[in-house]
Simulated assay, not measured.
Amino acid sequence: MMKTVGIIGGSGFIGSYITRKFLEEGYEVKVSVTNIHKSEKYQHLFDLQNSENLNIRAFKLEDLDPLKDFIKDCDIVIHSGTPFQLDVKDPQAELFDPTIKGTQNFLEAISEASNIEKVVFIASVAAWNTNFPMPAGGKSFTDTFDEKEDRYTSEDSHPYSQAKFIANQVVEEFIANNPELPFEICSVSPVMVMGKSLSNREDSTSNGLQFLIKNKIAPDDFIQRLYDNNVPFAVVDVEDVANATYQAATKKGLHCKDYLLTSETYKVWDIHQMLNHKEPKEKAQIVYKNDLAKTDLGIQFRPVRETLRGYSK
């Protein structure tokens, strides 16, 4: 019998690749969107292989009843539905409420569901270090970082990063307070996700950041500081994130794990060079390490050069 996966935010930049992967692997796939009338945000999913097994449902994570209804017959649930935005007018309304309240609602809903075998959170490197791409407190740009490190947060960090950090704390507390869960929960924490979008949408923050760096555009002080300081970025390919999510969702024995998903680190001007089909001036560094994801999930992370070349085709 075909298994069902529910993907919250399954039409976004990362979510679309996760949706594609599960469809290819023969799953019944339910995707949540926030507005059914904005079909331009999810229409591309119907061009995917096996899209006859795709079902789109519209609701917001703040609304508990439709969320419970969405996941009640799912074997696997993936939470990829937190807003990623850097240009924020009202952090509380735009980031903290939907991210944290949405996570709390999601945890309440899954705790009442009877079918679930596995839950995967698409967290973020910000759940490990809210200063990313700057180093965690007390570290330099070249100090390595892996899952043995202490998590680091600062109130001076970007509100998006702080929201992701707090959401991760909410998940950890839920796991600690519910030692007898009938399903496994694990998380994947990607660094800066790059690659080609599966949709034609122009409003994806990840895609937008690549566009800005490719064209040396600085719409705000945050981006300008990246250029001024030629900040190193750890990058991961969006398809590798989807493959790692699939492995985390379908392998047993990963309860409580949180995997950094990361390839190589390059300075922002070298990322600009590669997005424009030019050679980087410096060699790639390994700052954020991916040994745990490689070992447990069997992912071979593709070189950043390949990822950036794919974006610019």
Rank of each mutant, 00 (worst) to 15 (best):
H44Q: 10
E117A: 15
H272G: 00
A176E: 11
G310R: 15
A293D: 05
K313H: 15
N168E: 14
K89C: 02
L45W: 08
L107C: 12
E180C: 08
A244M: 05
E279C: 03
W269T: 13
E173F: 08
M2L: 04
D143Q: 05
D69T: 01
E264H: 13
W269M: 13
Y227D: 03
P179I: 13
Q85V: 14
L181A: 10
D90V: 01
I76Y: 07
D296R: 05
G253K: 08
H158K: 02
D90C: 01
L181F: 09
D90P: 01
G208K: 04
F46A: 02
G195L: 02
H79F: 12
M194Q: 15
I71C: 02
E117F: 08
M2R: 03
F174V: 10
L297Q: 06
M2F: 02
L212V: 06
D258Q: 15
G26A: 01
I286F: 07
F183D: 10
E24C: 09
T307M: 13
I286H: 13
G138D: 09
Q169Y: 06
F84N: 08
S114W: 01
H79P: 02
G310S: 15
S140Q: 06
D65N: 12
P133A: 04
I116M: 05
T295V: 06
T205C: 02
P98D: 04
D228A: 15
D97S: 09
A234H: 03
V238T: 03
Q300W: 00
D63A: 04
G12I: 10
S111T: 02
D203H: 03
P182S: 14
K38Q: 14
K21H: 05
